[in-house]
């Protein structure tokens, strides 16, 4: 059967990994290519780069990072951050990315999702949705890296992007991101129940049980995490062993 995926995510700025790491075996811990290769060696099911460069010059460095990663990492690679046009997506795909994540640009112009899906297939387009709880128990979509409220209901937006041809939803809880208190499981469950495309849970992982909960309770198809892997607390292999012990189907390498 289809296994649940573990996806380590690296924030990249101006071609360098932003958050510190304790991959002691790496000669250059700030090199995203070296980190991606290390995660690949640990058995990561996919690797995600989120480009948070603020300038066009910084942005252009991600293409080189993607090319060098594709030279040596033979696992699926998702790249997001600053993708505004079909041409932006094409440049990343030709450089060696398998999937492109869009967020703010898709909120501004939802047809971007359909246009990328028509050109490269729905498997190539991931829509990243940043959601925050409202007082009434629903969730609101935020854009611009979680800074701007959009007065858009997260469940309605997720259904819409699925209809437009998104292949997958990368769902981040703004309430939980950075808290290490676990995924917003109600949010994950609500979205997983609302759409028929795969959902990646993100935001709030602090323990291996949080990963398992996102899959077993949230119903996510994949879990994305950053700090618990970057800081060397847990390897991908240890995480998979934990998920397997919780009865979840994983690929043990």
């Amino acid at each position: 059967m289809l296994t649940r995926r573990i996806i380590p995510c690296l924030d990249v700025k101006d071609g360098r990994v932003v958050k510190g790491t304790s991959f002691v075996q790496l000669r250059d811990a700030g090199d995203p290519v070296a980190q991606a290769a290390a995660y690949d060696a640990q058995g990561a099911d996919e690797i995600c780069f989120l480009d948070i460069s603020a300038s066009p010059e910084g942005r252009s460095t991600i293409l080189d990072v993607v090319e060098r990663t594709a030279d040596q990492v033979f696992a699926p690679l998702t790249v997001g951050g600053g993708v505004r046009t079909v041409d932006d997506a094409e440049r990343l795909l030709l450089a060696g990315a398998d999937k492109i994540a869009v967020n703010t640009a898709a909120i501004r112009d939802p047809s971007l999702i359909a246009r990328i899906a028509e050109r490269f297939g729905c498997q190539a387009i991931v829509v990243a949705v940043d959601a925050k709880r409202r007082g009434d128990g629903t969730w609101e979509v935020y854009s611009h890296g979680g800074r701007s409220p959009e007065d858009l209901d997260a469940l309605a937006w997720c259904r819409r992007v699925a209809e437009l041809g998104a292949g997958e939803i990368l769902l981040t809880s703004m309430d939980r991101d950075g808290t290490r208190s676990g995924y917003d499981l109600e949010l994950v469950r609500a979205v997983a129940d609302a759409v028929t495309i795969p959902v990646i849970a993100s935001g709030g992982v602090g323990t291996l049980d949080h990963l398992a909960d996102g899959l077993a309770i949230g119903g996510a198809d994949a879990v994305l995490a950053a700090s618990i892997f970057h800081y060397g607390e847990h390897t991908i292999g240890a995480a998979k062993a934990h998920l397997a012990a919780r009865g979840l189907p994983v690929r043990i390498t």
């Binding site: 289809l2 649940r4 995926r5 795969p198």
Partner: peptide, 8 residues
């Protein structure tokens, strides 16, 4: 889910 996406 469709697409069938991941390791099988």
């Amino acid at each position: 889910k469709v697409p069938h996406m991941g390791w099988n």
